[in-house]
Amino acid sequence: MPASQAQEAVTVSVFVQRFSATRRGARLARRLATHHLDLWHLPYGSPASDTVALVVAELASNAVLHGRVPGRDFELRLTYDRPAGLVRVEVSDTHPARPGFHGPAAHGPADADGGRGLLLVEAVAERWGVADRTGPGKTVWAECDLGQCR
């Protein structure tokens, strides 16, 4: 028998789940995201958990409000790269329209409801963007540098 080889520690964790494109689905995506972060030793209520939860909530909400195609779900993918201290959030939907970001002035009066989700993502994420996906739709992603969370 060959000598046993040492196993490398797992340094990247991934969570993937599809959700119904409803408000309830968006809420469940946020809750399951914080649950998995807690399993990955990023505890509930910590700055890291709160930052990622905000990003998940905003991107999932956008998928439900603006990316919804009747009869189609959205997908959440979280990737935690421990050595890099980075969590990548990806939300994919089947709507072809890409989100627009035109800065604060494009969102209307300061007291208006809605329209600021990507501003929040821009404020708390290291970077974000939109990518094509296999099949219809797009993936909106954001990367959170856990060392920058306060």
Rank of each mutant, 00 (worst) to 15 (best):
L146V: 00
L59D: 02
P136S: 15
V121G: 02
L119W: 04
G71A: 04
F101H: 13
V69A: 05
V87I: 10
S49C: 06
A57R: 05
D145S: 09
T134M: 13
M1E: 08
S46Q: 03
H35S: 10
A63Q: 04
D145V: 01
R116V: 09
A110N: 04
F19E: 06
L86V: 15
Q7H: 09
A26K: 06
T79R: 09
G71P: 05
S61M: 01
Q17L: 11
A112Y: 07
L78Y: 01
P70E: 11
R23A: 15
G117P: 07
H35D: 12
E75N: 11
A110C: 03
P70R: 09
G71C: 09
A6K: 12
A29N: 07
L119H: 12
V12L: 07
R24C: 06
R77C: 11
D81K: 00
P104H: 05
A9D: 10
L76G: 05
V64W: 08
H36Q: 14
V69H: 10
F101W: 14
H66M: 02
F19H: 12
F101A: 06
W40D: 01
S92K: 02
R68S: 13
C144K: 06
A125V: 03
A84N: 10
V91A: 01
G114R: 09
R24F: 11
H66R: 11
V89W: 00
D73Q: 14
Q7D: 08
A53L: 00
G108T: 05
G147I: 07
L86T: 12
V87M: 11
E90Q: 14
T134S: 13
A21D: 12
A3H: 09
T22Y: 13
D145L: 05
E58Q: 06
L146G: 01
L120G: 10
P47I: 04
G115E: 04
V124F: 09
A21P: 12
R150C: 14
L59G: 03
W128T: 06
V10Y: 04
D113K: 12
V55H: 03
V52D: 00
V124A: 07
F74S: 12
G135F: 09
A97C: 04
R31H: 13
D81W: 00
V130G: 09
W128G: 10
G100V: 11
G147R: 15
G108K: 08
